[in-house]
Design a protein around this nucleic acid. Structure first.
Length: 400
DNA sequence: GTCAATTCACATGAAAGAGACCACGGTCTAGTG
DNA sequence: CTAGACCGTGGTCTCTTTCATGTGAATTGACGA
């Protein structure tokens, strides 16, 4: 006990390398946005008519994760909101993230959430969907107003529910008497729009804006800006920012990742009682982030998913050759038997394997072995140290 | 040797069921004046 | 008389199962050279 007291004491007295660590957290909104002037102006131009109560064009925004889409759009819309409230213009802007479960990931919930923002409570379930539509419709059309609805990660919504929601929302304008709705869709899947119904496609993407990934130089300036606010002078080893930027620019140019990398590296440095964040901490940080991400994903999975993954790992370590769906399913059934879990059908396991693939935990390739059938060739995409750790976690979770 | 048909081992799709959650309206019950 | 408890019905949503159909190349087998 005494020792722990000492530890905390030391911790408090220790001189920190941070001035304001919050700046590095993912929910921090910076005051200025770098390298997005063109997009900001574009969006502002498109949305400006809303201040005259003219319906702006529907807008579609693409860009990979961490390219500042959400940040930019909130920045612009916040200004519009502010101006609107100053001048008492009935413009309302809603931001919905379609990926958040239980909030906006189905047609019903999306409408409920929108209605809620408009000040009308609708039960989270139990009503027919068209009833909810009617309610929603009525609140909007109560008075003259302009709504701008931002649907972030709209691809998720469509993937789960099809594009009928979008169709309904784009069409609703023709029925509204007093109000108007404009939609802004944000997606990080570039091919997404091509999979839509052509009618929806043409009306949703009246305007399109693309957010390119940041390059290393741009990332550097973003990082430098944050570093100024977050760290005390001379807390970073020479060349650290450059390395960090180069690291992230190589895959995707994701600014969020770059900042996270820096944050984790600095945390490691702090824990090691270093006075500076060193480049070697970056390497460590990268590994840690990756590992934590996987561990996080896997702990959150339902039991059946965990058993499936465990089976894959077992088969993978028992066999040096390629492994296939059938092998996994056999082992899976055995494990279920052992831990007293009712095994699912192969059809379902097949889907689960596909889901792990899209989570990036495993790699899957569809191959045909000619006369010997068609199947998925599965390989783990986890680094081996992470893999054994995850195996242990799974064994624990499943009491094996 | 050549070429189309066959065949395997799943993939992929569609539909439907089970079970959890919930709203709503009607009926029953107990408490109140 | 009324508030609350307690149904039954009907709705959504997620996870599964069931049934049906699709698929790509190794293999087979008929055919002709």
């Amino acid at each position: 006990m005494q020792k722990l007291g000492d530890f905390f004491e030391k911790f408090i007295n220790k001189e920190s390398i941070f001035i304001n660590k919050k700046v590095l957290q993912s929910n921090y909104i910076p005051e200025s946005i770098f390298h997005r002037d063109e997009q900001i102006n574009n969006i502002a131009g498109i949305l400006a008519p809303s201040l005259k109560l003219e319906r702006p064009s529907n807008l579609f925004i693409y860009g990979k994760t961490g390219t500042g889409k959400t940040l930019t759009i909130t920045y612009v819309t916040n200004q519009i909101k502010e101006l609107a409230s100053q001048k008492d213009i009935p413009v309302k802007i809603f931001y919905l993230n379609c990926k958040l479960k239980k909030i906006a990931d189905t047609e019903y919930r999306l409408l409920v959430q929108l209605a809620y923002e408009l000040g009308k409570q609708i039960p989270p379930t139990g009503l027919p969907t068209d009833e909810v539509y009617k309610i929603f419709f009525n609140i909007i059309d109560e008075k003259e107003q302009l709504l701008i609805i931002i649907l972030d990660e709209i691809d998720q919504l469509v993937k789960r529910n099809g594009d009928s929601i979008l169709y309904n929302l784009t069409r609703i304008n023709t029925e509204l008497k007093k109000s108007q709705i404009a939609l802004i869709g944000i997606s990080n899947n570039l091919t997404f729009i091509d999979e839509l119904d052509p009618r929806v496609k043409s009306s949703l993407s009246e305007e399109e804006i693309i957010f390119p990934p940041y390059n290393a130089i741009q990332l550097q300036s973003i990082l430098k800006d944050r570093v100024k606010l977050a760290f005390k002078d001379n807390s970073l080893e020479e060349g650290l920012i450059e390395k960090c930027a180069a690291f992230t620019a190589r895959d995707h140019g994701d600014a969020r990742r770059a900042i996270e990398l820096l944050r984790v590296a600095s945390e490691i440095a702090e824990r090691n009682n270093e006075k500076k964040v060193l480049i070697k901490h970056l390497d460590e940080a990268e590994e840690k982030i990756e590992r934590d991400r996987f561990v996080d994903i896997i702990e959150k999975q339902p039991k059946q998913f965990q058993v499936t993954l465990y089976s894959i790992l077992i088969v993978n370590s028992n066999k040096n050759e390629s492994i296939y769906t059938g092998d996994v399913y056999d082992i899976y059934k055995q494990i279920c038997l052992k831990i007293g879990l009712r095994p699912l059908t192969q059809r379902r396991i097949s889907d689960i394997i596909a889901e792990f693939d899209s989570l990036g935990v495993i790699n899957v390739k569809l191959i045909s072995k000619g006369r010997y059938g068609r199947t998925r060739e599965i390989s783990s995409s986890l680094p081996s140290t992470t893999e054994s750790k995850i195996k242990k976690i799974l064994e624990q979770e499943l009491d094996l």
